[in-house]
């Protein structure tokens, strides 16, 4: 994480928020992010299909 520049991480966070995977939480002037419900579902699906691809000796 420390090797990612601030502008890069902001771009990634903006993309994840725009896709509904993260939620921006305004907390006393500082920007904080938390995973959304669709984000949790995506991670669950990603984990499931990583195992699925592993079964075929492949990686996704």
């Amino acid at each position: 994480m420390s090797k990612i520049s601030q502008s890069r991480i902001l771009t990634i966070l903006k993309t994840l928020v725009s896709q509904g995977l993260l939620e921006k939480v305004d907390n006393q002037g500082s920007n904080k992010y938390k995973i959304s419900e669709p984000g949790r579902e995506f991670l669950q699906a990603y984990y499931t299909f990583t195992n699925f691809a592993d079964d075929f000796g492949l990686s996704i």
Binding site: F42, A45, Y46, F49, F52, A53, F56, L58, S59, I60
Partner: peptide, 14 residues
């Protein structure tokens, strides 16, 4: 279903 959820080209080939 995996491809639709993850966009993985591996799953597309499968």
């Amino acid at each position: 279903i995996g491809f639709r959820n993850t966009g993985s080209p591996t799953l597309f080939r499968l």
